[in-house]
Amino acid sequence: MGLSLNVQDLRVTGAQGREILAIDALSLAPGGSLGVRGPSGAGKSTLLYALAGLVRRARGRILWDATDMIALRPGARTRFRRETMGFVFQDALLFEELSAAANASLAASYAAGARRRAIAAGAREELERLGVPSGGRRVRTYSGGERQRIALARALSGEPKILLADEPTASLDRTMSEALVADLTRRTRREGISLIAVSHDEMLLGAMDRVVTIKNGELVPA
């Protein structure tokens, strides 16, 4: 089952000390899905990275169940991310020289013995479930839709409790986007994974349980 999210008084400042994100409160039920929309530069991706514990200059509280990401030490934050989160980005960000299976099971490279095998098996299953041919060929030869599905398989292979997606359909055409959204929502709902997706894509946002809008780093009423 996914984790609940409870954000309180989150403040993120830029390198020059300027406040670039101010979220007083934001929540998500375990296994729920949340869409984040807003104009470019509004702070959508910054919010997503803050929720993942990747932002250095953040204050406030980001509670995933009882775990406060901001209060965690860097090593613990990395471990929490590794054990509970999956990521899908706008650009699939694959290792072009590796095969689909090697990309999907990337986390096995740094996981311990038993978990390594579980991740590798999970990656194979996800690729099969998502219909990606997983021979030995390098991922650079795959289509855009297939590459995003490989990225999705990579995100799901570790059986995450939280899935964070940053503009996952932005580089895909309509048909591919529809297929990816269907895969994304079907898999997260079935496994009870908490899903937060930042996007301009109304089709993707329409598939979310709830959608919030950010402008100038702040949540605005719908």
Partner: peptide, 12 residues
């Protein structure tokens, strides 16, 4: 790609 690894939770 190295940042991706760190984002995915790969240990330093």
């Amino acid at each position: 790609r190295l940042a991706l690894l760190r984002a995915l939770g790969a240990p330093g």
